[in-house]
Design a protein around this nucleic acid. Sequence first.
DNA 1: TATAGCGATATGATTTGTCAAGTATTTGAA
DNA 2: TTCAAATACTTGACAAATCATATCGCTATA
Lengths: 124, 124
Amino acid sequence: MWYTLITMARLVVPETSQIDHSFCPVYEAINVLQEKWTLHIIRTLLDGPKGFNELSRAVGGCNPATLAQRVEKLEHLDIVSKTIHSTMPPRTSYALTEAGQALQTVIEAIDRWGRQYLPEPAAH
Amino acid sequence: MWYTLITMARLVVPETSQIDHSFCPVYEAINVLQEKWTLHIIRTLLDGPKGFNELSRAVGGCNPATLAQRVEKLEHLDIVSKTIHSTMPPRTSYALTEAGQALQTVIEAIDRWGRQYLPEPAAH
DNA sequence: TATAGCGATATGATTTGTCAAGTATTTGAA
DNA sequence: TTCAAATACTTGACAAATCATATCGCTATA
């Protein structure tokens, strides 16, 4: 099975016009990264490991329930790793795994695009 | 004002610890791209201009209300352009602008990352 | 001794996204 | 000729995601 940039999530097999439910990496990757706060969390952790509240402050504006859910999901995907240093007083740190670090290229591409094409909001 | 990859949306000025509401391109770019379906829409349009239903089918799974809202927003951001060929019968086409085309680098980075780090879901 | 900080979790309100159905007209097939 | 399908959306009801805020037991600092 081939994949191209224009390959759809559900590939249509020409002969039969049936839907192919095979796995498409780009589509899945987009689904992972498009969840609210995910890219912000990753960008923040590129700066180095952080505790829960520290991460929360650095990300800016994400409420704790959502943040907890996001980092849990990212942990399952092996993008973020969680280390518990002590339970009482609670002390934890979140860091990027190798897969997480690899997302730096994505963040950089977004960064370049934003600088070039997003207009500074003008007063109106 | 400087921007770096680790720059937060609201920069804290060290001397005063006050919040700086200055515009941060990366943060804004992430906010644009993290809305549900946005990256899928852009990836689909990289394949060439499409009509509304054609786009809908190619994106796969996005409902028309959301799709209409997304393309309208992308039009405002000058990422997508809309051309009405005829009103009755209705015929329209959506295409990427220069800024939209430039997002190909982002999609490609996501593509590479997905192929390398997203595991094919195993049967369980 | 009082206060702030830690890593969360609970609550109920609000925002966002989804679903099914419908519009007015033309095109292609039976 | 007659009927189903396609075009680009819109509407209103509903479900799901995210929101601000309060809270927990405990420790380190003030």
